[in-house]
């Protein structure tokens, strides 16, 4: 240890050359993998989106035709609005609820690990199984939830009423994913050093003041991750609504993914579906960038 500290040359090097950018070369393999698995497929989608593809040998360049068609397609616009509504609802419920659940978990109890594992359980269930569980659970004739709601005097049938279908979908997503927000928030809460709380107590802060001025600022990092994950996931949700409502009743729960799958896999309209995907990608990119920038900008103040 001592020779290292007294080694003048070492000190000099670190003092004048704090950054050695050569380490970035180590990232090169990742670039190659991402290029292979993400960038090149994305380029293919862009290639498809400007062509009318009939089979392997006949394809015609059509320019922006598919984009124009998609943007003027009322079904696309409706599905888009529905998708935004769904993401906004899900975020508005899951984030506060997740924080509340995390606040409710004791940090020191012997039961804490058990509670955490129980919380993590819904996250381990595959999407289509979640859909199937809720398909049974919410059925008005035999499902536990559906029968109970109807017995309580409310007429409830998610297969017939658009509003009920929506509520069931939101409930299902909350059931599936609130734990993620709760676990992330809990991790954030446990990383707050005790002196912060002691200082707040000395200042006579009330419970909500502790939450607002001590915990919430320290939770920002994990909440950014939670919101981004939930935003992207709920914006791309496919399997659960597909299993539970299949987009119905009517088109009332047909989200973008559902419509896209019908186009690409059902009708095999590769060109329009590719244009659709590029538009979809652009919007996700915009949302994530906007959100990230807003949060980071507040950080700099």
């Amino acid at each position: 240890m001592l020779p290292l500290l007294t080694n003048k040359r070492w000190l000099k090097v670190t003092a004048f050359k704090p950054h050695n950018n050569r380490a970035w070369l180590g990232v090169l393999p990742v670039f190659l993998i991402v290029g292979f698995s993400a960038v090149i497929p994305l380029m293919t989608v862009v290639n498809y989106s400007v062509q009318d593809i009939l089979d392997f040998n006949s394809r015609f360049f059509v320019g922006f035709q598919w984009y124009r068609d998609t943007l003027n397609d009322a079904r696309f616009v409706d599905a888009f609005i529905r998708q935004i509504g769904f993401s906004a609802t899900v975020l508005a419920v899951e984030i506060p609820l997740g924080i509340a659940v995390a606040k409710g978990i004791s940090k020191t109890s012997r039961m804490t690990p058990i509670v955490l594992v129980l919380l993590a359980l819904p996250l381990l269930i595959p999407w289509n199984v979640v859909g199937t569980i809720w398909l049974m659970f919410a059925r008005p004739d035999i499902g536990l939830l559906g029968v109970l709601i109807n017995a309580a005097g409310f007429s409830y049938n998610y297969t017939a009423d658009p509003l009920h279908a929506w509520l069931t979908l939101v409930a299902m997503d909350v059931w599936h994913w609130t734990s993620l927000v709760a676990l992330l928030s809990f991790a954030g809460l446990t990383s707050i050093p005790a002196p912060y709380y002691q200082a707040a107590e000395l200042d006579g802060a009330r419970a909500w003041q502790v939450f607002r001025y001590v915990e919430l600022p320290r939770l920002r990092g994990v909440l950014v991750i939670a919101v981004l994950l939930r935003l992207m996931d709920s914006f791309m949700i496919y399997t659960e609504p597909f299993v539970l409502t299949g987009g119905g009743p009517g088109n009332s729960t047909t989200f973008l993914t559902q419509y896209l799958a019908t186009m690409a896999v059902g009708q095999f309209d590769l060109g329009p579906a590719a244009a659709f995907s590029v538009l979809y990608f652009l919007f996700i990119l915009l949302f994530c960038w906007l959100f990230y920038t807003m949060v980071m900008r507040n950080d700099e103040r």
Partner: peptide, 13 residues
């Protein structure tokens, strides 16, 4: 290969 067209190729270039 990958259904390239000149416009998209130019775009990515």
């Amino acid at each position: 290969w990958m259904a390239w067209t000149w416009p998209t190729a130019l775009f990515f270039i």
